[in-house]
Design a protein around this nucleic acid. Sequence first.
DNA 1: GGCTTTTTCATGCGAGTGCATGGTAACGGT
DNA 2: ACCGTTACCATGCACTCGCATGAAAAAGCC
Lengths: 201, 201
Amino acid sequence: MPKQVDHEQRRRLLAEAVFAVIGTQGFEAVSLRDVAEQAGVSMGTVQYYFPTKRQMLSFALAHMRERVLARLQGAVTALREPTRRDLIRAATAVMLPVDAAGREEACVNIAFFSAATVTPAYAEQLRDGYGRILTVSVASFREASRLGELRDGVDPDVEAPALYFLTQGLVGPILVGLYRPDEALALVDAQLDRVFRPAPP
Amino acid sequence: MPKQVDHEQRRRLLAEAVFAVIGTQGFEAVSLRDVAEQAGVSMGTVQYYFPTKRQMLSFALAHMRERVLARLQGAVTALREPTRRDLIRAATAVMLPVDAAGREEACVNIAFFSAATVTPAYAEQLRDGYGRILTVSVASFREASRLGELRDGVDPDVEAPALYFLTQGLVGPILVGLYRPDEALALVDAQLDRVFRPAPP
DNA sequence: GGCTTTTTCATGCGAGTGCATGGTAACGGT
DNA sequence: ACCGTTACCATGCACTCGCATGAAAAAGCC
């Protein structure tokens, strides 16, 4: 029984094609034909790996989550001797559309957020994904608080969601050109300044 | 020359139908037939008032902005002897999907944000609309700062965007059920507590 | 090499799309 | 009362959509 291709890898390839189509032509323009063309295969192949369009999009959403997490992991491990603030700042920067990859991910994510308002399955996936990130963020802030890195009177259970939602709120405005990435990062830094104790020289 | 109907009002009616369709079936499901049925008219009528679908959606986006501003105005004027913090909090609450109207508006807005990533005309409209709100917010914070209502060392030019983008970032998570409206308002209040001086008894 | 299984593709189909067209009802001015 | 403008509607058309079908190509196993 021959099994020469890795189905999961093939699906990831198609998911990347989905991202490209969403990023260049928008979510509503995603069709099986466009995805097939973008991936360089025929339409039948797309159907072979995804029985239905919705399943394809659902897989793409799951793959997008993993892609973001991978990029986040990479950005974190790239730091040499980072402080906790450095880690949080790097993770925040990953979620902002500052480069091409981040912008594509942001476009895809906002598209799925929009679709999630009428497709509960997407909403559940987004809850899981972002809820996990939020949990990690809270844990990181709590650890910083335990180590005395935060200013007096700063509640990590408030500041973690605050920074997280601030970041989320910056994505849309950056995408439409209302705010520049450097302005957004400056705002994030200002927030971090107010939360973290100044570093001892 | 008979002119018995108000074209602008008719367009607003159709725009409201567009909102209903987006809110219940999603942005990509918006068709001229759906809008016509939702509005209780025929498809030809929709075409009569909007030469093309894109112009209809563009008008709908502009009308949505006015609807939000009207609801914001209403919420603000409903307050009796409000403090500046009360005003800012009320305006913030309007932009969060806490009730049915707010939720519908949020669904429509996020849909247009998504579409704006590939439709520059939408992006420009969103920039104008939200940029205006942001400007007003900054002005309000500056006024509060001038009157000494803010805590020491608080920069209104930082806090105004921070609160605004925090609010924007809360919209999506509330829509998908990751965060509850009361949690979001609590976060906003915490932010306001940190920015505004405690009220003198 | 033959054969089965896996993988890929081309094509067809019904449904739905945006838009164009021609026709019809309603109203205001004279 | 009549007519022209306005408002509205039903229908047709070319197109695209997701999905189903059947066949061709590729690849491991005997």
